[in-house]
Design a protein around this nucleic acid. Structure first.
Lengths: 109, 109
DNA sequence: TTTGTATATTGCAATATTACGATATTAATT
DNA sequence: AATTAATATCGTAATATTGCAATATACAAA
């Protein structure tokens, strides 16, 4: 991407955009789906669940981790990933606020 | 971006990723914020609301329009943009389903 | 200590995104 | 018809993303 002028937007706008961007790839949605589906941490199973090479999956995990959507714990030989509750709730709150605004006010063409 | 292998993911994963990606820029969040805030269509005011040049804003509007999040109507000399209810509701449904799954099931490290 | 297994990092090619000046288009106004 | 105003498109520079082979790292097991 080109340089995006984050300094001109509010912190909330930048944060929400970062979170949305992190989810803006089907592989990363698939990772989140998988984490939610299995009801707990995932240790050493994610690569096999995705139609991508191991380094590519690792990179997607890194991106999700860098915005805080997931967190990883080293567990012996494996790395266990799970949803990061704090960030997830923040994301949820951002969006629920948007959805609420739309429901209450929009009266459009 | 490089080529993303959309053919390996489900339609839902690809759609949700596209919508999230479209919201993955603070300028586009700002546009949505503004549309929601003003409670109706926006005619000819968006460029002045954003700290970006007119062609850049036009490009962001085009991206939001191309995934269906907003729609535009020509109104005389102006173009009026508003949230596209169908897509917005779809996006909302996708996310509410994710949030629900998290609430019910997640029991994590 | 060597081997095997899981994950991360590096490096790079192909492609996409962002931003904006210049220019085109379209319609209202004079 | 010429001017003004709003928006879109084109072209392009700078930078980011995606994907993966090769390689590194870290730990467990033999």
């Amino acid at each position: 991407m080109g340089v995006s002028k984050t300094e001109h937007f509010t912190e909330r706008q930048n944060e929400l955009a970062s979170l949305a961007k992190a989810l803006g790839h089907p592989a990363r949605i698939a990772i989140i789906d998988f984490l939610l589906k299995t009801e707990s941490c995932i240790c050493g199973d994610i690569v096999n669940e995705l139609p991508l090479a191991q380094p590519t999956v690792s990179q997607h995990l890194k991106e999700l981790k860098s915005v805080g959507i997931i967190k990883g714990n080293i567990e012996g030989n494996l790395i266990c990933y799970c949803i990061n509750e704090a960030t997830w709730n923040k994301f949820k709150a951002f969006l629920e606020s948007l959805f609420e605004t739309y429901n209450l006010k929009n009266n459009c063409c």
